[in-house]
Design a binder for these strands. Structure first.
Lengths: 202, 202
DNA sequence: CGGAAAGCTGAACCGCTGTTCAGGCTACTC
DNA sequence: GAGTAGCCTGAACAGCGGTTCAGCTTTCCG
């Protein structure tokens, strides 16, 4: 199955990008991990550049689907403050799986700076993320947890920015900003916009 | 002069890192731009890895000195709200020179994730940055512009995180987050912590 | 069955680039 | 003036790794 093999190659490429850095990725190693020959990799992706670009695209489309849902629906288990706190927590690079995503994310940033072709990929993921967060905020407003005058989009933008900025520092093992401190910074930034106490978002 | 030549090589390396990406940097090109031979580069830096690492360190020590002052003093031209607004504005990747610094910054993030040796470089710059912003906030409190109960360190941490997160999106040409929107996000995040109106930080 | 298309492979090619080596030039010291 | 140390160079080496190529096997279809 062509689709299957190509996907396996892309997965292998993503793994290696996260592990060793996009520029350290060698076609031979991708092939090896995917159980294929280098020629087969070239059969599906004419050039190394194309392989890497497709790998990033593949990764982020799939990551977006996983996290934000294919249809974009919000998990309505517990709308309100708790749901927002949960959303924040699972966005930070605390556990292993998220660490991988974060590394890929920073790789994409850097690559997209120089390759405008990739920017829409990043922008699209930001859009979905923003929409997802804004929906959580809206649900919280509807549930009466937040100030009805709050601007969900603005809150989402601020939250994403703090998450990105603080997340990087967590990844860098900054002694001043661990996972818990990062969470507190997000809460401190958006709580006033929602008219709640920062501790409510813990 | 040995010091001089080594510095010239490091400068050339930084330029190329910013322009083409750290992994695309070729010793021959560094040498060319520095007006030297590849052998001379190896005379000062035994290996390519060492050259690149030293270049990043050189860049950020110097950047910190330029921006935050060697002695760490705060420019006291206009303490208070205006000073903070100015500090925010000049931290964002708006103009050309800042763009270069931002690219190098993201390169450092990515490299430091995989090379723990570099993390102290990043952490140190964050420390200086944080101290600088906190001093601006303190000056504003002393001037009576901000809530006396505000926590300067917390404000600085939140501001840095939003600046980083929003700055990346500016660099990615995100249609939703340009330089002005980025500035507004920082203001929205920290204004409540300072007890001022976000518009005051425009 | 015949044949084309798709999936896949091993081996060879070859250009790029980090690194090394042998030595030249300058400048300073005894 | 001889020696020595530092600065610097051109040329050659060597290996990595992307890419190509010729051809094998399998599948699909008329």
């Amino acid at each position: 199955m062509a689709q299957d093999t190509a996907a396996r190659i892309l997965e292998a490429a993503c793994d290696l990008i996260a592990e060793e850095g996009i520029d350290a990725v060698r076609i031979a190693r991708v092939a090896q991990r995917a159980g294929a020959s280098t020629s087969l990799v070239h059969h599906y992706f004419s050039t190394r550049e194309e392989l890497l670009e497709q790998a990033l695209i593949h990764s982020f489309e799939r990551a977006g689907d996983d996290r934000f849902g294919v249809a974009g629906e919000v998990a309505e288990t517990a709308p309100g403050t708790a749901a927002l706190a949960e959303a924040i927590r699972e966005s930070l690079p605390a556990q292993g799986e998220q660490e991988r995503e974060w590394v890929l994310w920073v790789e994409l940033w850097l690559r997209a700076v120089r390759e405008p072709d990739l920017r829409p990929v990043a922008n699209r993921l930001y859009d979905r993320y923003r929409e997802w967060l804004a929906a959580v905020v809206r649900a919280g407003i509807a549930a009466g947890d937040f100030d009805p005058g709050a601007d969900p989009e603005a809150v989402a933008d601020v939250a994403m920015a703090v998450l990105d900025g603080a997340g990087v520092r967590v990844m860098l093992d900054d002694p001043g900003v661990g996972a818990e401190r990062a969470r507190a910074l997000v809460a401190a930034a958006i709580a006033p916009m929602l008219g709640v106490d920062p501790d409510a978002l813990a």
